[in-house]
Simulated assay, not measured.
Amino acid sequence: MCKGFGSTLIGPALQWYNNLPFRFISSFAILSDNFVEQFASSRHLERISDGLYEILQHRAEPLRGYIASFNQEKVAIPRYNIPTAISAFKRGLLPDGDLYKELTKYHCKAMENVLSRAWAHVKWEEDVASLTKAQLKRDPKGVRSDRTEREERPSPRPTMNSGNRSRGIYQNRPIEKGERMAAST
């Protein structure tokens, strides 16, 4: 049986078998014990829930990225412990973040509740980022210089007190084509 064992091996295992000293193996039990001892570290270890504590949100990482990496690791665990997953998710968050504070104040017993709160914060985070981006596109330096020029010269448009009260707060807004037609009829 020991002689046929070598024909079932490939790669590093076959190389190990071929390099065994002559008459080193006297029984199949000794061969199998040595084989397991040699290649036990090559075995895939099953992931456990405690591995979730290793996932941390980095300072510049958006919440969406942290949730994605946490979920990717969580689904790789066949039988994860829900309280451990919730605790690991909370501990991986930035401690000065709003979601961390919320999860600390309001204890969640289900992972779905934690993730729904997290996705609400993702939406808020992305809305704030898009508003900030839109404001930066307006070029505030150019707007400020226009304002100083406008304040120095008188406005040619009628003001609220000049008898054109129908336009209300939109007095400085240009009249659209459709509005001109409606105003003339």
Rank of each mutant, 00 (worst) to 15 (best):
T8F: 10
T8P: 00
T8H: 12
L9T: 05
L9K: 10
L9Y: 04
L9C: 01
I10K: 15
I10D: 08
I10M: 10
I10T: 15
I10W: 12
G11N: 14
G11V: 02
G11S: 14
A13F: 06
A13S: 11
A13K: 11
L14H: 05
L14N: 03
L14R: 13
Q15N: 11
Q15K: 14
Q15A: 09
Q15D: 11
W16Y: 08
W16R: 07
W16T: 04
W16F: 07
Y17Q: 01
Y17M: 00
Y17S: 02
N18V: 06
N18M: 07
N18S: 11
N18L: 10
N19H: 08
N19L: 11
L20I: 05
L20V: 04
L20N: 00
L20K: 02
L20S: 05
P21G: 03
P21I: 02
P21R: 07
P21W: 08
F22K: 13
F22P: 03
R23M: 04
R23H: 09
F24Q: 06
F24L: 05
F24K: 09
F24I: 00
F24G: 02
S26F: 09
S26K: 12
S27Y: 03
S27L: 00
S27R: 10
S27E: 03
S27F: 03
S27T: 14
F28Y: 05
F28I: 06
A29K: 14
I30F: 11
I30L: 12
I30W: 07
L31P: 02
L31F: 03
L31C: 04
S32I: 07
S32C: 01
S32Q: 10
S32Y: 07
D33A: 13
D33I: 04
D33T: 09
D33E: 14
N34H: 10
V36M: 06
V36Y: 12
V36K: 15
E37K: 15
E37G: 10
E37A: 12
E37W: 06
Q38D: 03
Q38M: 15
Q38W: 05
F39G: 09
F39L: 08
F39P: 08
F39W: 11
F39C: 05
F39H: 09
F39M: 09
A40K: 15
A40P: 01
A40N: 13
A40Q: 15
S41D: 15
S41V: 09
S41H: 14
S41A: 13
S41R: 13
S41M: 08
S41K: 14
S42L: 12
S42M: 11
R43M: 12
R43E: 13
R43Y: 15
R43D: 02
